[in-house]
């Protein structure tokens, strides 16, 4: 599939000297859902803002549907819809008016039928004459989506659409995103919830400290994210992993004072019971047992430091 959005070596240095984007390159294919995962302050919002024209890039280029987002900003921006992270709506306007406003702002002729269908799809039709200030938080988020869709964009940016949203609404959001995708809209969403990416994305990009660490298909990524580690601390250190435990692929840690076992939480069997039995049978005495799950950031910072080229990092290195 052709890339509808092409970002090349995008850099953003804010006035204070803070470098929010350190040369991000990314191609987004038409019709896909890409989730950008990353902790707070990773550069997700800056990336979106720069593509949309809210922030000016320090260097690099962005091409939207083949149009440069600076020199051909009209054609480029016409293709993009943006749902911001914060609820930023004028409190006194009515739902229908603010959504109609968004369409007009993009220079599109009025189309009451289309606006009506967007409002119905987002369960806002009944509230069309309500003022924004009288809506619940969830409804306001829907209004933001309706505004972004009013000019029929081909690319939709959702900046943390489910931050601070209850489970019910989050599922509704995911459903909406799936429907939009079915309608041919390319979707880029940012999130710091791994479950969110898992639930709806086709591909997942991980961004931290202004750098895009990797972008890959969700399935591949999930396989790594599902891994967990169990550390068995021994009362007496050993020099090597005992022969009887070789089938468990253990790593010796803490100078022989501990054994590290990596397992997949999604597997039918984690193998922990067998491992602990075998450890006891091998005559080792346990002093403590602990499990840990690497955070997103841990895993990918680790990947970058070992792999150099983040995108080419071997899967075996993970966790």
């Amino acid at each position: 599939m052709a890339a509808i959005l092409s970002i090349r070596d995008l850099r953003k240095m804010y006035d204070g000297g803070f470098e929010a984007l350190k040369g991000v390159s990314l191609d987004i294919e038409e019709g896909e859902i890409l989730a950008l995962l990353g902790p707070n302050g990773a550069g997700k919002t800056t990336l979106i803002s720069t593509v949309c024209g809210i922030t000016t890039a320090t260097s690099g280029s962005v091409s939207v549907g083949g149009f440069d987002n600076v020199s051909q900003f009209r054609a480029a921006r016409a293709l993009i819809g943006l749902v911001p992270q914060e609820i930023t709506l004028e409190p006194f306007t009515k739902v229908l008016d603010t959504v109609t406003f968004s369409r007009g702002l993009f220079g599109k002729p009025a189309n009451a039928e289309l606006i009506g269908s967007i409002l119905r799809k987002l369960s806002l039709w009944e509230k069309r004459d309500s003022r924004i200030m009288d809506l619940s938080g969830g409804m306001k988020r829907r209004v933001l989506i309706a505004k972004a869709l009013a000019h029929e964009p081909r690319i939709l940016f959702l900046d943390e659409p489910t931050a601070g949203v209850d489970v019910e609404l989050r599922k509704d959001m995911w459903e909406i995103v799936r429907e939009l995708k079915a309608g041919g809209v390319t979707i880029i969403l940012t999130t710091h919830y791994i479950e969110e990416a898992e639930a709806i994305a086709d591909r997942v990009g991980v961004i931290t400290g202004g750098e895009l660490l990797l972008v890959e298909a969700k399935e591949q990524l999930m396989a790594r994210m599902g891994q967990k580690q169990l550390e068995v601390q021994l009362a007496k250190p050993v020099e090597a992993v005992p022969e009887a435990l070789s089938q468990h692929n253990l790593q010796l840690v803490n100078g022989g004072g501990g054994l590290l076992y990596t397992y997949d939480t999604r597997a039918e069997r984690t193998g922990i019971t067998t491992l602990l039995n075998d450890v006891a049978q091998a005559g080792l005495v346990l002093s403590d047992v602990q499990t840990r799950e690497s955070s997103l950031e841990d895993i990918f910072v680790g990947l970058v430091s070992t792999g150099g080229d983040s995108k080419g990092a071997a899967e075996g290195d993970a966790a």
Binding site: S49, C52, I54, F73, A78, L82, E86, E90
Partner: peptide, 10 residues
Amino acid sequence: GNIYEILSAP
């Protein structure tokens, strides 16, 4: 904050 809409419009 809804100035974002004006800044991102064509």
